[in-house]
């Protein structure tokens, strides 16, 4: 067996889903004995069989990955409850194994994956997806880059053809619920954690938090970092459309038009609004030069 063949084989065994009791499966997907297969390359010792030795790695793999995703989505966990959340995460990870060297990226696909898997959220799909999107936006806002913001001179020199950009850490969300209420209730109790190099010996669970029940209402949010803290800021539809158009790389003339798409606002009121939007965005350092 070459080194690559060995690693493919062991990776398959280590990442095989656990049983409902969080132990290594005894039968492979093709009906063969996992114990027999593992014994072909793992030595037993006087206390543990080959199967039991590899089971340590198989359990650690899942405990580490489940812990990493759980830490990033504590509000989704609190909302669905630990049993349903565990089931969701296991299925998500089976379909979305890590493809990044950094564990930080593991939950990136969860919001879109959840949208396609209503079986894990029951009647609360829309709220669960909103909560997941908001929690992932928090991760992005927390540690994505911040570029030098445009200053007054830059802003004064803008032309209708100018193309701007938004801070990489700024996340724009159009939600169906005021999901930030749920997320804020949980995040204030969430400890920060590191990536470390030690073994993971147990499946850790978080304590329950009493959650608010947000009502269904279209909510536009900016999740951004200011002085190294993450904030959720509600904006109106016009500001959302304007910022979205900036993110899409549209010239300012089009950005302004987009902001009032299907708006009944009078032209004089529009000019005032546009000024407000730009002053606000500039004050918070959201606008940057177009990197292109």
């Amino acid at each position: 067996m070459t080194l690559l063949e060995f690693q493919r084989r062991m990776a398959e065994d280590v990442s095989r889903p656990l049983t409902a009791g969080f132990m290594m499966q005894e039968v492979g997907p093709d009906g063969s004995s996992v114990a027999e297969s593992v014994a072909n390359y793992v030595k037993p010792n006087g206390r543990l069989s080959s199967f039991e030795r590899l089971e340590i790695y198989n359990r650690q793999y899942w405990f580490r990955l489940i812990a990493a995703v759980s830490e990033d989505f504590p509000a989704l966990n609190a909302m669905l409850g630990p049993k349903r959340f565990d089931e969701l995460i296991l299925n998500y990870l089976e379909e979305n194994p890590s493809t990044s060297f950094n564990l930080r990226d593991l939950g990136a696909q969860l919001p879109s994956w959840l949208e396609d898997h209503p079986e894990f959220t029951g009647a609360h799909l829309d709220l669960a997806v909103d909560v997941a999107r908001l929690e992932w936006a928090y991760i992005e806002a927390f540690d994505r880059a911040a570029m030098p913001p445009l200053d007054e001179t830059d802003l004064a020199a803008l032309q209708p053809t100018s193309v701007l950009a938004l801070q990489p850490h700024l996340q724009l969300l159009a939600l169906r619920y005021a999901a930030e209420k749920v997320v804020l209730a949980v995040h204030k109790n969430k400890p920060d954690v590191d990536i470390v190099s030690s073994a993971v010996i147990e499946r850790k669970t978080s304590r329950q938090v009493r959650l608010p029940k947000p009502r269904r209402s279209l909510t536009y949010l900016v999740v951004h970092r200011y002085q190294n803290s993450v904030y959720y800021r509600r904006i109106d539809r016009g500001a959302f459309l304007l910022l979205s158009a900036i993110r899409e790389g549209k010239p300012l003339a089009i950005v302004v038009d987009k902001a009032f798409c299907q708006s009944g606002l009078l032209p004089s009121a529009r000019a005032k609004k546009i000024r407000q939007y730009f002053v606000h965005a500039a004050e918070l350092g959201w606008l940057i030069a177009n990197p292109a």
Binding site: L4, Q7, R8, A11, V14, S15, Y57, Q60, Y61, R64, L65, A68, P97, S98, T99, S100, F101, L103
Partner: peptide
């Protein structure tokens, strides 16, 4: 292996 990370 093959672009997948075990993080172990």
């Amino acid at each position: 292996v093959d672009g997948r990370y075990t993080h172990d």
